[in-house]
């Protein structure tokens, strides 16, 4: 047994040595190609390690620390707080339902919009496309400001609703309520969902749709039984992507403050007493939840995902 173990060890060491040697001085064309691939991947790996993996590991370590500012000892106290304290459970619940609700809403809006863009003859289409993709490059704080313009105390839609309902416009202004935050979320989510859905729509087989219509299906039936199954991977991909975005939104909530969500609480832990251990524990939970969610979703669905 022991001898076997040793020989496996030496064999592994030898193979590592051989690999390194082939990288430094390759003997065959295949080895040269591998050396090139490694060389091409090295710069990115360095960046990933120094600005991604290493900081995240340090964050993971301090979330178990007994001391507040340096990594010392081992305790799961911060995680226990997250699980047992109803305050944090409530925040987790808020975050999840709100992200899910806004995601579903923005996809329900984005599907008809993508449909119209792909199938209908629209005037000034390039202008429409620019308008629809413009919010993609706006940070969350600007999206929040847009909602203040629409639904704030002097907001345009507030004025309209005040006129229609006869109430004071301060009473109908919803910018800083949950409703305003809802619109702010979908302001940044709809363009993101569209980006993916338009790509999917471009690949839909229109022959099948025409055949369905010719055979007597109504437009709704055609959409339900012919188009929807074809765009399903795109819809699921958009759901994963937009849900991830929704969980990461922070600037918008920081301004509108309609609902206490996970990211806002992370900031509060830092702002009130610099409790970096608790903030790190929350960030770690966030990271593993989203990582696990993405991996599972990609593994068990037929989703198409890009940024």
């Amino acid at each position: 047994m022991g001898a076997d173990h040793v020989s496996t060890d030496t064999r592994a060491a030898e193979s590592v040595q051989a690999t390194l040697k082939s990288l430094v001085s390759p003997a065959s064309e295949r080895q040269r190609e591998i050396r090139r691939i490694v060389a091409l991947c090295i710069p990115f790996s360095i960046l990933l390690v120094f600005s991604g993996v290493f900081p995240l590991t340090e964050m993971f370590r301090i979330s178990f620390s007994e001391s507040r500012l340096v990594t010392e000892g081992f305790t799961v106290e911060y995680y226990r707080t997250l699980v047992t304290d109803p305050y944090y459970r409530n925040i987790a619940f808020n975050t999840l339902w709100f992200a899910a609700a806004t995601t579903v809403t923005s996809i329900c809006v984005a599907v008809p919009v993508a449909h119209a863009l792909e199938k209908y003859a629209l005037p000034a289409k390039s202008v429409i496309l620019t308008v629809l993709s413009f919010p993609n490059s706006l940070p969350g704080i600007v999206a929040a400001f847009m909602i203040i313009i629409l639904f704030g105390n002097t907001g345009v839609l507030s004025n309209v609703f005040a006129f229609l309902s006869g109430q004071s416009r301060i009473d109908v202004a919803i910018a800083t309520s949950v409703g305003g935050l809802f619109f702010a979320y979908i302001y940044s989510m709809i363009p993101r969902a569209l980006l993916l859905l338009r790509g999917t729509y471009a690949e839909v087989n229109t022959d099948a749709e025409e055949a369905a219509r010719a055979l007597g299906a109504t437009p709704l039936q055609t959409f339900r039984y012919v188009t929807l199954p074809q765009i399903k991977p795109g819809v699921i991909g958009a759901f994963i992507l937009v849900f991830r975005t929704g969980l990461a939104i922070f600037g918008t909530v920081l301004i509108l403050k309609g609902l206490l969500v996970w990211t806002l609480q992370i900031d509060r832990e830092l702002a009130q007493g610099f409790n970096i251990a608790q903030a790190s524990a929350m960030a770690t939970v966030w990271f593993f939840f989203v990582f696990g969610f993405t991996v599972l979703a990609l593994r068990y669905t037929s989703a198409e995902v890009s940024i």
Partner: peptide, 21 residues
């Protein structure tokens, strides 16, 4: 996947940076 999917969003990476650097 690693090259085109963001590893962590700004706020999470921010907390990590605050601790590390």
């Amino acid at each position: 996947v690693f090259a085109i999917l963001p590893l962590a969003p700004g706020i999470i990476l921010g907390v990590a940076f605050l601790r590390t650097y």
